[in-house]
């Protein structure tokens, strides 16, 4: 029998609980889900234990060919979700980028206060923050009340249940995810490089385009990924602010599990989301590694 030395024993004590826990309750479920996505959906919920790749076909439009015609409805939902998630990334970036510069120039006590105030919403209930927007956007909501009383509109506007409302809600939820990485890259900018660029006669715009923006790019990419992935898979925002009109892939997954009881198809859709995640994360890792190799 192999004996462990002191260090190995301590390491074993430190790592075993977490390793066991995460293998059983994190990696295990993910693996089972991957297996499920290749099983045949049973007639009354549940699964048949036979190899069935058609759930993946169904995402792309081809189902098993027996009872479903070629239909790209799921692909459309997938693309719409990606579009809404990208729009969310763009808006959060536009919001956070200038603010990051503004805060980075503050005296340090104000700086930490502002960062605290931006991080704070992350720790408050998502459903309540969305509820606030329902109060504002619905027909008899705050926005309509104000517009009506100012006489700008005569009839309440339909502000809820649209793609715009969903984007607004997701921006509101995910702003801290974009701000913190962007801010840390802005904070780490080397003022000497900016000064050098100015001394060499670059216009402010050129300095921004050639020096400042490339140096903050890692933060921008990290923030974009942190917003894009949860936005893509979100189902609470579209179900609260999008109603039946704006269905995202997350709503589709929810339906498969709670209404249609087609678990394999729901698992397949999750696998598609994991695929998206792996794509963007590996893109990020490649970018970073390239940067590191260049440096």
């Amino acid at each position: 029998m192999r004996s462990f030395n002191g260090q190995q024993k301590q390491l074993l004590v430190l790592l075993t609980p977490a390793t066991l826990f995460l293998s059983v309750f994190f990696l295990g479920p993910l693996l089972i889900m991957a297996v499920y996505s290749f099983l045949e959906p049973g007639l009354y919920g549940g699964v048949e234990w036979s190899f069935y790749p058609w759930s993946y076909g169904r995402v792309l439009g081809w189902a098993d060919g027996f009872y479903e015609e070629f239909d790209i409805v799921y692909l459309e939902i997938l693309l719409r979700s990606a579009g809404l998630a990208l729009a969310t990334v763009a808006v959060t970036l536009l919001l956070c980028y200038p603010v990051a510069f503004w805060i980075s120039r503050m005296p340090s006590r104000w700086k930490s206060f502002c960062i605290f105030m931006i991080a704070l919403p992350f720790f408050s209930s998502m459903i309540i923050r969305l509820y606030a927007w329902i109060l504002i956007l619905r027909d008899s909501g705050f926005a309509n009340q104000i517009l009506l009383s100012l006489g700008i509109i005569a009839e309440p506007l339909d502000l809820m249940y649209s793609g715009t409302a969903v984007i607004l809600g997701m921006v509101y939820i995910f702003v801290p995810f974009m701000f913190l990485p962007v801010y840390s890259s802005v904070e780490n900018l080397d003022p000497k490089l900016i000064k050098a660029s100015q001394d060499l006669g670059a216009t402010p715009f050129t300095t921004f385009r050639r020096v400042i923006f490339p140096m903050t790019l890692p933060g921008v990419i990290a923030g974009s990924i942190l917003v894009f992935i949860p936005a893509l898979g979100n189902f609470v925002v579209p179900s609260m602010l999008g109603g039946a009109k704006v269905v995202m892939i997350g709503n589709l997954v929810e339906q498969q599990f709670l209404a249609s009881r087609n678990w394999p198809f729901g698992a397949t859709l999750s696998m598609v989301m994991i695929l998206f995640m792996l794509l963007v994360v590996s893109f990020y890792l490649l970018k970073v590694m390239k940067k590191q190799r260049a440096a």
């Binding site: 309750f25 994190f26 295990g28 089972i32 979100n234 189902f235 997350g250 999750s270 994360v281």
Partner: peptide, 26 residues
């Protein structure tokens, strides 16, 4: 281990939620 502990933070909640649901029911 670093990767293993990073993944749950990046993964969409819904994926983890349904993976756990399938697991618990299974």
């Amino acid at each position: 281990y670093r990767l293993l502990l990073m993944v749950p933070m990046v993964m969409p909640d819904i994926v983890l939620g349904i993976a756990l649901l399938i697991f618990f029911v299974g």
